[in-house]
Each structure stands twice: as structure tokens, then as C-alpha cells.
Amino acid sequence: MRLVQVAQHADDLDRAEAFYSELLGARSTARFDPPGLLFFDLDGVRLLLDRNAPSALIYLHVDNVHEVLERLDGRAEVLSAPHVIFTHDGDALGPGGHEEWQAFIRDSEGNTVGLIAFQRA
């Protein structure tokens, strides 16, 4: 079994498409409007932005949390600044010998999004 799709609420598909294109560094893969569905590919998992979906807390793996926030350049409210939450000794939840950095932002649609990066300790 594997995860196929995650849905996230989006009131304005144009605004959400601009925001997520910048955040993900990728273009959307499909749009159906009506009924109001926008898709991005996250390494084989579909991110669906949908007017009728509830808000979800999603965590996105990024190479560097600080660089993503710089790239967004104020287009997202930072809810929690980048910080180390854990240093992985083993590989159970992340690569051993790496710090796990997290930050939380509010996207263009009011949803909270977690950003996670692993950096060598």
C-alpha cells in the first residue's frame, strides 16, 4: 500500500497555483475548473488543491528550510521559524546523523504547511 493523493483546501485556484508553483518549484500537472481541482505531482503522490476539500496539515520535504523561506520572500506567513526538532541517531524516522529542521508557514489559502529538511549534524 502507498499514499496516492493528499487533498488541501483552496478557495482561489489561480492564487493557489501561483503559490504552490513557487513553493514546489514545479508547475501544476492538471486543472479541472469546473469543478475546481488543481493537481501537482510530489514524486508520485498527487497534491490536490480543491475548493471543497477540508484544510489538511501537510509536511513537505525540502532541501533547505531557510532557502525555501527566502525564495517565498514574504509570500507566506511564517508561523514557526526554522528550528531543529530532532537529531537522528538511527534511520527509523530520518537519515541517521542528520538534524531534522522544521518550519511552518501559512499558504495562500490559509492552510498550515510544514517544511522539513535533513541536514548533517
Results as ranks from 00 to 15, higher is better:
residue 1 M to D: 11
residue 1 M to Y: 14
residue 2 R to Y: 10
residue 4 V to F: 03
residue 6 V to Q: 06
residue 7 A to Y: 14
residue 9 H to N: 14
residue 10 A to P: 15
residue 12 D to L: 15
residue 12 D to S: 13
residue 13 L to N: 00
residue 14 D to S: 03
residue 14 D to N: 03
residue 14 D to V: 02
residue 15 R to N: 05
residue 15 R to G: 11
residue 16 A to K: 06
residue 17 E to Y: 02
residue 17 E to K: 06
residue 17 E to S: 01
residue 17 E to P: 04
residue 18 A to D: 04
residue 18 A to M: 07
residue 18 A to T: 08
residue 19 F to Q: 11
residue 19 F to C: 12
residue 20 Y to I: 04
residue 21 S to P: 00
residue 22 E to W: 03
residue 23 L to Y: 08
residue 24 L to N: 01
residue 26 A to Q: 05
residue 28 S to G: 09
residue 29 T to E: 05
residue 30 A to T: 11
residue 31 R to S: 00
residue 32 F to G: 02
residue 34 P to N: 01
residue 34 P to M: 01
residue 36 G to Q: 00
residue 36 G to I: 00
residue 37 L to H: 02
residue 37 L to P: 02
residue 41 D to E: 01
residue 41 D to K: 01
residue 41 D to L: 03
residue 42 L to V: 00
residue 42 L to G: 01
residue 42 L to Y: 04
residue 43 D to L: 03
residue 45 V to W: 07
residue 47 L to K: 15
residue 47 L to H: 15
residue 49 L to T: 12
residue 50 D to R: 01
residue 51 R to I: 10
residue 51 R to G: 05
residue 52 N to L: 04
residue 52 N to V: 06
residue 53 A to K: 10
residue 59 Y to L: 12
residue 59 Y to W: 14
residue 61 H to K: 04
residue 63 D to W: 03
residue 65 V to A: 01
residue 68 V to C: 07
residue 68 V to R: 05
residue 68 V to W: 05
residue 68 V to L: 05
residue 69 L to E: 05
residue 69 L to M: 05
residue 72 L to W: 03
residue 73 D to P: 11
residue 73 D to K: 07
residue 74 G to T: 06
residue 75 R to I: 08
residue 76 A to T: 05
residue 76 A to Q: 08
residue 76 A to D: 10
residue 76 A to Y: 09
residue 76 A to N: 02
residue 79 L to T: 12
residue 81 A to E: 09
residue 81 A to P: 05
residue 82 P to T: 04
residue 83 H to T: 09
residue 83 H to P: 13
residue 86 F to G: 09
residue 86 F to D: 13
residue 86 F to W: 10
residue 87 T to Q: 14
residue 87 T to H: 06
residue 87 T to N: 10
residue 88 H to K: 08
residue 89 D to L: 07
residue 91 D to S: 03
residue 92 A to C: 07
residue 92 A to H: 00
residue 95 P to T: 11
residue 95 P to R: 12
residue 96 G to R: 15
residue 96 G to P: 15
residue 98 H to E: 13
residue 99 E to C: 15
residue 99 E to V: 06
residue 100 E to S: 03
residue 100 E to A: 04
residue 104 F to H: 13
residue 105 I to W: 08
residue 107 D to F: 02
residue 107 D to V: 02
residue 109 E to Q: 15
residue 109 E to H: 12
residue 109 E to G: 11
residue 110 G to P: 11
residue 110 G to H: 12
residue 111 N to I: 14
residue 112 T to H: 07
residue 112 T to V: 15
residue 112 T to M: 15
residue 113 V to P: 11
residue 113 V to H: 09
residue 114 G to Q: 09
residue 114 G to A: 05
residue 116 I to W: 03
residue 116 I to E: 06
residue 116 I to N: 09
residue 117 A to M: 10
residue 117 A to F: 14
residue 117 A to E: 14
residue 118 F to L: 08
residue 118 F to I: 11
residue 120 R to F: 06
residue 120 R to K: 12
residue 121 A to V: 12
